[in-house]
Amino acid sequence: MIRLSVLLIALMTSACVPPAYEADPVSAQQWQERQDRIARRAAEQARLCAITKPEDPRYDQLCNSTPRDRP
């Protein structure tokens, strides 16, 4: 019973852990690679939105979500 309680507490508190830290790029090449990744993600999301029908349950998630790269 104690093990179950400890496991339950560990699972509940693990959701409170902040996301992994991503350091800012330091070189011009790293900044460009970051910008390219962001552009690829945006293009992929736009492509998925374009091929998803409005009645699809994922439509709102794909087409109406805000980018996570915004501060």
Rank of each mutant, 00 (worst) to 15 (best):
R40M: 12
A46Q: 13
L8C: 11
I9A: 12
C49V: 04
L4K: 14
A23N: 06
A23M: 01
R3K: 13
L7P: 03
R34V: 03
S5F: 12
T13A: 14
P19L: 07
A43R: 06
C16R: 15
P71L: 04
C63N: 01
R58P: 00
I9Q: 11
L7I: 15
T52G: 01
L48T: 00
L4A: 15
A39I: 04
I9L: 14
P18Y: 00
R37Y: 06
L8R: 09
L48Q: 07
L7T: 14
L11M: 15
Q30K: 00
T13N: 10
A10D: 13
Q61V: 05
R68K: 13
P67T: 04
S5Q: 14
Q35Y: 04
C49L: 01
A46T: 03
V6H: 05
P54Q: 05
N64Y: 09
L11R: 11
E55T: 12
E44K: 08
A46N: 11
Y21M: 14
I9D: 08
D36A: 13
S14M: 15
R58D: 00
C16Q: 15
T52Y: 01
S27E: 00
D60C: 11
S5N: 09
A43V: 07
L8F: 10
R37Q: 10
A39V: 06
R37T: 05
A50R: 04
Q45R: 10
R34P: 00
R68N: 05
N64G: 08
M12V: 13
Q30E: 06
R3L: 14
R41T: 12
A50L: 03
L8G: 08
R41V: 10
P67D: 09
Q32P: 02
Q61T: 09
R58W: 02
M1N: 06
R3A: 13
L48D: 03
R41I: 11
P67F: 01
M12E: 12
P54M: 01
L48R: 05
R37M: 06
V6D: 06
E44S: 09
P71Q: 09
W31M: 04
A46L: 06
Y59K: 00
E33M: 09
P71F: 06
R37A: 07
Y21E: 15
E55C: 07
D24Q: 09
E55Q: 10
P54S: 06
Q45S: 07
V6S: 07
A39R: 09
C49Y: 00
L62W: 01
V26G: 04
P19A: 10
A23G: 05
D36S: 14
A23R: 06
Q32N: 12
A23D: 03
P19H: 02
A10Y: 14
V6K: 08
T66R: 11
D69F: 02
A39L: 09
Y59T: 01
R41D: 13
Q35C: 02
R40T: 13
R70F: 02
V6L: 06
P19W: 02
Q32K: 10
T52L: 00
C63I: 05
